[in-house]
Structure formats: structure tokens, C-alpha cells
Amino acid sequence: MKSFAKMPFGKTPSALSQHKYAIHATLLGDDAVCPWTNLGLWRNTCSYVAACQYLANHLAGRLRLRAMDRVLDLGCGQGASLLFWQQYHAVTDITAVELQAKCVEKIQHQPWAQSIQLHQGSFLALDAFHLKQYDVVMCIDALYHHDAMQFLSHVQPYIAPSGRIGFHYLMLNPRFETLTTYQKMKYQYLLKAADINIQHLYTATAFQAQMHALGYEDITIDDLSQDVFAGFSHYVQRKLPGQHLKSLDTLKIKMTAKLCQKLAQDGLIDYVQVCAKKASL
């Protein structure tokens, strides 16, 4: 799941420092200097790069991203999304925040990134960066390791009036409440191993109510579970069939894929795309 930090379980190449969310993108099929590191949206493609672009573009489409928008990309990873906004959406006003210092340093050395305002740090500590307000705020496959409500409260001052926000998250399927206490506890520990706190997860109905209370409107929640969870799992099974676990990078990818497979099969935890507008005063 995104890097697993941004795949939620891993993301940066071995050449970069091994942050707990780092994953080796080359093993997944992206050899670019600034590769993608998300789980991908697997619709009519067997290409990892295309699937990652589809996930980003699906979010951009729902947010009605325009060339003239001021964009804030939170948790931008190794920078593939930033180049994508420039090349495919003609966005020129981009600010980005990324926790991994090695990723930020790498992006800063790219000629195409010279016009981007890039900050190294947590997207839960934006006050340190003296940011302006943005028309579109996006967080691609990077938020579910955190409390979404804390994030939404923290980021709201940086959204322009009637500005839009979009991100990916995990939610409890209504059937989750039918589980026994023991079964719920098993899921709690399963997600904890992926650095996800089940106490931060809501059903879609409860999540929407919480967002309304925080000052968001026009909320849409799209369930992408099968196209993301099952798609990534099937891809890894084809890409790395029965390979020996020769490295931590390979282990991270395979563990991520196994978790995705279980979540897809059980249908109790949903992978969703959430988009909303900042409520008018």
C-alpha cells in the first residue's frame, strides 16, 4: 500500500536510505529516475507504471484538476506525481511535501523540478513551511498510516475558499461490525504490522459525518478495493513468482501483496478514494 509508505508497506529504491516506508520501485517495474511508488489502479493494464498513473489520474479527474490550479501534493514520494501534473495536466504552480529526505534531495536535482516548491518534512506539520492556500490538495496513497481526521483538520487552513482535497484511505466495511471481538482483534494486529491503526478507521457513513463536522462538503467516497488490492496482489504474483527472498526490498513487496490479497478476499477493509470541497464560510 503506497510505498508502503506510500505503498503502505514500503517505497524507496535500495540506493536511497531505507525508510520504513521505502520500497524498491525497480523490482515493481519502474526504472525511471523518479519512479512511482503506489499500489496502482489496475484497470485494463498489466503495467505497473500505467497502473500508478491511473490511480493518480483517477484522483485528479474527480478533483477536476485544471492547468491553472495551485496544487499542493502531500507525500509526493520520489516525485513521479509531480512530473505527471506538469506533463499531463500542464500544472505550473506546484508545492510538494515529502518526509523522506533522500527523496526530496533526488527530486531537487531534476531540471523539471526547479519550478516546484519542495519541502522536506511531515504533512502533519505544515505550519513549519509557511505555505499559501491551494486550489487542490492531494495525498496519493500515503495517508492511511495516519489519523485522517487529524490530517483534515491540520490541512484545512491551506485550502483556498471552495478549494478541493482528495486522498486515498482505508475504511471499515459495514460487515466489519459483525465480527466477534476476537476477529476484530486479529485485524487490529494485522494492520498494526503494516503501521496502520485500526482505531483511525471508520465506516464510510461515519467518515463522511466526521468530514462534514470539520468543515468539508460535496464529499465523495469511491471504493477502489478490487482494482487496487486485488490488482496489486495479482501483479506481484506475476512479476515476482516464487522468487527467493533475497532482500528486504523483495520481502516488503511480497508482504504488501499478501496483505492486499487478504484484504481483497475478506472484503472487510475497503480501499477508498475520498474527495471533498472546503465548505464556504
Rank of each mutant, 00 (worst) to 15 (best):
K2R: 10
F9K: 04
F9W: 06
L16V: 01
S17T: 11
H19P: 00
K20F: 12
A22Y: 13
I23V: 14
H24D: 15
A25T: 13
T26S: 15
L27R: 13
D31K: 12
C34E: 12
T37Y: 11
W42Q: 02
S47P: 00
S47V: 02
V49A: 04
V49M: 00
C52M: 01
Y54L: 14
G61S: 11
G61I: 08
G61A: 06
L63N: 10
R64F: 05
A67Q: 14
M68I: 12
R70H: 12
V71T: 08
L72P: 04
G77T: 10
L83R: 14
F84E: 14
Y88P: 00
Y88S: 06
A90C: 10
T92K: 15
D93E: 07
D93Q: 09
E98L: 02
Q100A: 14
V104T: 07
I107V: 11
Q110Y: 00
P111K: 10
P111H: 09
W112Y: 02
S115W: 00
S115V: 00
Q117I: 03
F123A: 06
L126Y: 05
L126R: 11
A128T: 05
F129I: 04
Q133I: 09
Y134Q: 05
V136C: 13
C139D: 09
D141C: 03
A142G: 15
A142Y: 01
Y144C: 11
Y144K: 08
A148M: 13
H154S: 04
H154D: 01
H154W: 11
P157G: 09
P157H: 08
Y158E: 06
A160H: 04
R164S: 12
R164W: 10
F167W: 09
Y169S: 03
L170Q: 09
M171V: 13
N173T: 02
N173V: 01
F176E: 09
E177M: 09
K184H: 06
M185N: 07
M185R: 09
M185A: 09
Y187G: 00
Y187Q: 01
L190T: 07
K192L: 14
A193I: 02
A194M: 10
A194W: 08
N197E: 13
L201W: 02
L201F: 02
T203R: 12
Q210V: 01
Q210G: 04
G215D: 05
E217Q: 13
T220S: 11
I221Q: 08
D222F: 08
D222V: 12
L224C: 04
L224N: 07
Q226I: 11
V228K: 09
Q237W: 05
K239G: 05
L240P: 04
P241Q: 07
G242K: 13
K246E: 13
K246S: 14
S247T: 07
K254F: 05
K254L: 13
M255C: 08
M255Y: 04
M255S: 11
T256P: 02
Q261F: 03
K262H: 14
A264L: 06
G267V: 01
L268I: 03
D270H: 15
D270C: 13
Q273R: 14
V274M: 11
A276F: 06
L281V: 06
